[in-house]
Design a protein around this nucleic acid. Structure first.
Lengths: 346, 346
DNA sequence: TGTTAGCACTCGATGTTGTTAAGTGCTAAA
DNA sequence: TTTAGCACTTAACAACATCGAGTGCTAACA
């Protein structure tokens, strides 16, 4: 195990490196942080810390930087989330609007707020939809040739799609279709709805209708797919340029397009257990992100499932501060989402 | 006026510079492009061309590059749009989907197609909405506390917004409100609707309703604003990194956020006359874009107004080819949009 | 036995210098 | 009017020296 002095030195190295970004050597450590040992002693200890894998050199005569193992130890045993100053908390609260009409607005704005607060990249996920239950389909005729299909779930999620009505289809037909959809599907979880819509529904429709009804299966199937698919909201993509080693423009582009497409983000963020987790560098299992760390946290909305927050920054981030911030933020966000639902149920 | 030989030399300089990106000198010009004059003669002519402002040096002993005036002359008098190979045209056609349900889908996908085709950044604008006439508001109750407001225009544009119904408001009230909106507003151009909604409507509502109706004025006002606002679709933002002098990361960020916000793009693109226009470097009147050129073109959709295409690339782009491409593209896009409307009116 | 001073060594960063290639303008001859 | 020739300029590049911050190791010290 590490001696107390070794821990102190490791901590100092991480502190210094996080602040300056430069590898740090024995003399600097002694002078700048006025550790009460000689540089030679520190050198010996550093040598030991390197053997143990907590720090490493960038080249044979350079100062040391923390290794993943070093950060890991630091995060797991040496720090605790820093309390956010009241003033910062107020800033978060006032960044949210007073009132939202859709859940997605809250989540997507959260991504922006969090990224601005940290200057890193924020990735947000709303409470998951898969288990929402269908409360109804609506089909609203808009003009002679247009109609809107609307899906509503028991979690107040609304999804809609405008489409063109095939010539020859009558209003009565539309009503029949909606009735069939609703009779068969209301109350089922969306995953079930999705299955049924692709298997049973087409058969039932064929029995009751003479016109071609593929279009409707398509449209409604489409809405369901859209609803079920996890939507990642990414804020501060451009912040990547601040902390990524921006020399490598190609790497930046790869990361950017990963963020932009959104669905591939699952590879990065696994929806596992509760609480706050930190993944450092290679722990992310993705070469692109070997210089990044990711803080992930869930937020609980009682009665409405849980969502996810993630913060992507450089491995050399101020973990203590960021952990505190994410923790506070998830509570604020949970409150905001609760408010939203409460207002709906009032 | 320029002599024929001077024109030939200017043209050669532009060709060479566009291909290689390097300033070009007299000897290179003579060798590489085998002009039938000696380097000394070319030197003299270049000197003259520089005096006249068509070309310039990057430093005292460097080769020459075309100036804005040089490009201007080249674009205006020396080239004509290049015919796009049939194979490329086919590529454009197949890049579009077979069938669209919303106009915005066509336009936004166009932005992607065009940017991929050129490796530049494409900016698209759909036919303008301001003169669309309102054909109806709908208010669809979704659950006890939610409703959707829908706007439909005579150009088949649909815009919608979900909102929460204030507690205590009854279904009958909603119906009254929608009736008033429709009685007052149907058939008016959206700009008119916008004005009335902010002035007369609140008064009328107050006369007929006891509950607070600000929310509805808000919601519908909001939808109108959204509909009227020009939406710029930008494709290939990341391509900026290919041709912008990517040394300057801050500049890139500025441009990116300009593109991202969208509404500021009006400063760059003026919706003026028909046809295809080229703006080169400083002609864009924006320091950020001094190394860029912008090709703008309108596309006509008979009976449904006109839209806009713009292509942003480096000043040293192959104008002839790009002009041809933009010209072809705008025809294809116009066709696609016409198809969309035709299907609706069938 | 743990701590420290001293020293030779390493390596990236930075600066200096020289060389080369591609260009220019100018002059004088064809 | 055109061209050959020449002196001059500049960016780009490579080779080289210098410097600063670091290391490991050894020997002396408390």
């Amino acid at each position: 195990m590490l001696t107390e002095r070794q821990v102190l030195i490791l901590e100092s190295i991480i502190r210094f490196y996080t602040e300056t970004g430069h590898p740090v050597g024995s003399k600097t450590l002694m002078n700048e942080l006025s550790l009460p040992f000689s540089s030679a002693t520190i050198r010996n200890e550093m040598s030991r810390l390197e053997e143990l894998g907590f720090i490493e050199k960038t080249h044979s005569s350079s100062g040391r930087i923390p290794s993943v193992k070093g950060y890991r130890f630091y995060v797991d045993y040496l720090i605790s989330p820093e309390q956010l100053p009241a003033q910062e908390v107020a800033k978060i609260r006032s960044a949210f609007g007073p009132r939202y009409h859709e859940l997605d607005e809250i989540v997507s704005q959260s991504a922006n707020i969090l990224s601005e607060l940290t200057n890193y990249t924020a990735i947000l996920l709303g409470p998951k939809m898969q288990e929402n239950k269908l409360t109804g389909f609506r089909l609203v005729p808009l003009s002679e040739h247009q109609a809107m299909a609307i899906l509503v779930t028991d979690q107040a999620h609304v999804e809609n799609r405008t489409f063109t009505i095939p010539p020859g289809m009558k209003l009565a037909d539309l009503e029949t279709i909606v009735k069939i959809f609703n009779d068969q599907l209301i109350g089922l979880p969306l995953t079930e709805v999705f299955k049924k819509i692709n298997v049973e529904i087409p058969q039932i429709l064929a029995r009751h209708l003479h016109t071609d009804s593929d279009l409707f299966v398509d449209v409604f199937g489409n809405i369901i797919t859209h609803t079920i698919r996890e939507r990642f909201y990414v804020g501060g993509k451009m912040n990547l340029l601040n902390f990524s080693e921006f020399q490598d423009i190609e790497k930046f582009k790869s990361i950017y397009s990963l963020m932009d497409e959104g669905n591939n983000l699952r590879t990065l963020i696994s929806r596992k257990s509760d609480g706050i987790h930190v993944k450092i560098g290679q722990e992310l299992n993705n070469d692109l992100f070997s210089d990044f760390s990711l803080i992930t946290a869930t937020y609980q909305v009682v009665g409405h499932g849980e969502g996810m927050i993630a913060l992507l920054g450089p491995t050399s981030m101020p973990y203590s501060k960021m952990l505190g911030l994410v923790d506070t933020f998830r509570n604020e966000l949970a409150d905001k989402v609760s408010d939203y639902y409460r207002f709906l149920e009032e």
